[in-house]
Amino acid sequence: MIWKEKYAIGVEVIDRQHKELFERFNKFLRVVRSEQSMEEKIADIEETFNFMGEYVIAHFDSEEAVQRKYNFPEYERHRKIHEDFKKDVMEFKRKFEENKYDEELIMQFSGRLLTWLINHVTGEDQKISKYINRKEEE
């Protein structure tokens, strides 16, 4: 997943976190897609997944704080998207704990996550940027 400057929303703390999130997701993705056997890569999958997962939660909190600061009108809707995502991640984690060698489950989850993250950053998060820019022009 490659960070592009056009993804920036113009709020320094959020852009820095997005870049870090992309880096952490890439570490996870490289391990998941490596040609090692599941036995060889399982510890790295867990480590990179946790490394990314913890960061996502902290980032969502920061992003929601920015939205509250600017009275972003779609705050509740955006927060629900974050909450649904967190539930989805927890559900994956539960299934993963049940069978850590289920490669299909990991491939399914990480493929979906890739598209979800890019859409979220390029679609939903850009709405925050547009709103803040409009407010600052007023």
Binding site: M1, I2, L29, M107, G111
Partner: peptide, 17 residues
Amino acid sequence: MAGMEFKEFDTFMASAI
């Protein structure tokens, strides 16, 4: 999206699309 090449259509790609 992934910034990497894929050799074949697999579960990961199916899930992403």
